[in-house]
Design a binder for these strands. Structure first.
Lengths: 237, 237
DNA sequence: AAATAGGCTAGTGTATGCAATCTGGCTGCA
DNA sequence: TGCAGCCAGATTGCATACACTAGCCTATTT
């Protein structure tokens, strides 16, 4: 995949803080899998595409490096992260822990308005799932992650919300690398089941559903550790 | 507290990546409470102190902003964060969740070498606790946080370790702002009790101890939400 | 022919200059 | 006296210029 693949992206109108705009555009491209793991993000090239100087690009890349979406090597440049299977396991282990806590708190705080928002979101997810074509796939991936981020927001803890932003984005990278069946694994209508349990106030069941759901996603990954593992690390990360 | 208070800091020898060295120096100063919440971190001033250009300083400040230790306002500059009581609660709620998971995993992985390292660390903590003077207080604060970071490292999950780095640092800020009795709250020898439970392989008890410990720290805070709350927010954050 | 040394080029790291923005005080007017 | 508007100094945001490093290509030597 070449870098120009993201030229389709329009920078958000928000004229102020262009670094953030570029970061968001790049993150979307990475999460949407328009930028493959390992792709080099040249400062000059990105700068040209967005019509800003390297200074601003470097800021954006540093932010992405913090989120773990980009790997930065001194004097060599920045690359879309290429997580190892071990990284993948750690990301999902973290999600099990944190999302269990989020579900518990979200169950306590869930309002009718939240439920309504979730319903609309699930409908949107279903629409994308029913559609064909790469654009629908990308939208489905994004919407699927957004469900988890919405849940984090409902839980009302900004710290955990930030952590989840990072974990969801990194999960998408991991799935891009190691996923077998693509995104449809996030199907099973797990999200609907979680919402249902949350609505009924059954925290225990909601938690269990969430852990199952994460298990489903992880089960779809092919994380066998062949000798290609170290090779992959050596080559790119 | 004036910014020059950190001039006592020596930048780490590591010539490469000076931005990281500056970040670490500033973080230590913030966590040690040599830099009070709200202190302005002027790019030019920091640059002069460390003998680098503003470019490098900006990178360091951006990193600290990501960790939540610094609050950056467009066209106004960077300030040491001034967490609200609500921020404080969220930090501790996150710690309860994440450290419970860390304890469980650490219990499974704890080696004899780890235990030995913990013992040495506890002795060090005790030495600082017994000593007088502001330097010993600072060392005690840092060592107290390091215990939790060591634990995260033993758990072997790099993601959670990074989260804990951030949470421990932010906790120190919170304690600086809202702590009643200073650091000694982290006394109670809670750490020793946690280690003991871990050694005996009693995960449940270790988890309980950890939650109690975090409860102790949080109980020492004065988080009453007077009208000063919004005032504080308005003034500084 | 293979291996190594040396320079060449592309690209990153850092410093600096300029424009834009904010702060604080001053002046003029009501 | 109080307030609004404006000007000056200071500080940040961004772009550009220069310095340095890594990786590649070539040429020379064994």
């Amino acid at each position: 995949m070449t870098l120009s693949a993201k030229s389709a992206l329009t920078m958000d109108a928000n004229q102020e803080d262009r670094a953030k705009a570029i970061r968001d555009a790049l993150r979307d491209a990475i999460v949407d899998r328009r930028l493959a793991p390992g792709t080099k993000l040249s400062e000059a090239e990105v700068g040209t595409l967005f019509d800003v100087s390297r200074t601003v690009v470097r800021y954006a890349l540093q932010m992405l490096a913090f989120e773990g979406l980009v790997h930065s090597e001194r004097n060599r440049g920045a690359f879309v992260s290429n997580p190892t299977p071990e990284d993948a396991r750690q990301v999902f282990a973290s999600r099990r822990l944190i999302e269990a806590g989020i579900v518990a708190e979200a169950a306590r705080r869930l309002t009718k308005a939240d439920v309504e928002a979730f319903r609309r979101h699930l409908e949107e997810e279903d629409r994308y799932k029913a559609s064909r074509g790469p654009d629908a796939r990308r939208a489905e991936i994004k919407a699927s992650g957004d469900f988890h981020i919405m849940l984090a927001r409902v839980a009302g803890n900004a710290v955990l919300e930030k952590f989840m932003d990072e974990l969801v984005a990194r999960s998408s990278l991991v799935i891009a690398l190691y996923g077998r069946s693509g995104v449809s694994s996030c199907g099973h209508d797990d999200h609907a089941l979680i919402l249902e349990a949350l609505q009924s106030g059954d925290v225990e069941r909601a938690t269990e559903m969430m852990l199952h759901h994460i298990g489903h996603i992880e089960a779809d990954l092919d994380l066998r550790t062949g000798e290609s593992l170290t090779l992959r690390e050596a080559l790119n990360l």
